[in-house]
Amino acid sequence: MTASERFRKYLSGEEVDRCPAIEWATWWNLTVDRWHKEGLPADVDNNEKIQDYFGLDKCLQMWIGYRTKDTPRSAGNGLGIVNDEDDWERVKKTLFPPVETVINTKTLDYFERARQRGDTISFFTVEGFFWYPRTIFGIENHLYSFYDYPELYKEMCELYSDWLIELFRYTFEKFRFDFMTFAEDMSYNRGPMLSKACFDEFLAPFYKKVIPVIHEYGIPVIIDSDGDITEAVDWYAEVGADGMLPLERKAGVDVSTYLDKQPKLAFIGHFDKMCMKDGKDAMRAEFERILPSMMRGKVIVSVDHQTPPDVPMEYYKEYAKLLYEYCEKATHKGENIAPCPVFEKK
């Protein structure tokens, strides 16, 4: 069974030989710097090589943005490039390049070869309908925009969703990614940053527009939102998403409660990064906490948002061994496991 087949079967609720053993995120540069000082070979300097070094299933990501070289840059961290309708009229002319210019077919060929090799899962990422307006308005003005510029917000998302549909069709005709993520980060440690009413008005219509297109290609849609997503998981389920990540333990997330209320969804992440510095016993205890959920549903364990720099490389090696051990322990025959929405028989 290839990594790609295993991943898709697992999300379909079918029998697999073991759970996928992946790190969906890249490693923190500070962590890698530390590990280089602790013996990680100097030439192990990119994500794929690090995945190989620790013996993980490989996970390749293609992240596509909507800007061009003519798009203005923000003046500083967290600041936007649009303050009002006039700015938008100017800026929008610099966005949404022809889709064939943003997809490098050589990279898609590389992904295809990696899939054929059998050790790689691939995913495609774009900004979601919370993240994208935030990068346009800037962090704080974005939060005001729901009240100050509601129609502008919707127009921005309308144009973006049209472009996304074109992008998805062009790309997925050429290569069927194993899954895709929408980068959102719309929650923090107290829950979502916006109300359900705001979500329904400003985000939901656009997800309902694009997700069916992605599903036509048999690609599961995973929403990437940090923080406490306990409320938001239901909102994203309503608009047709197939899962969420990274389920940050520090924000109070408990995936077992999500399996109760959203059994069709898949969940990636959830391993408490904060325990890793405490060594093998602490990490084993964390795997034991998650194991019942892994056996109940489609829970793909991965560090819940990058290994912190206080984790020695030897501990990470232990983590990788434990990950495999628990991925094998959690293997199920697929009974009573609901498929993700994309894999439901229509």
Binding site: L143, R190, G191, P192, M193
Partner: peptide, 11 residues
């Protein structure tokens, strides 16, 4: 009590 959210606090 999560009855209003960040945008409502800001405005």
């Amino acid at each position: 009590n999560n009855e209003v959210y960040v945008p409502e606090v800001l405005v």
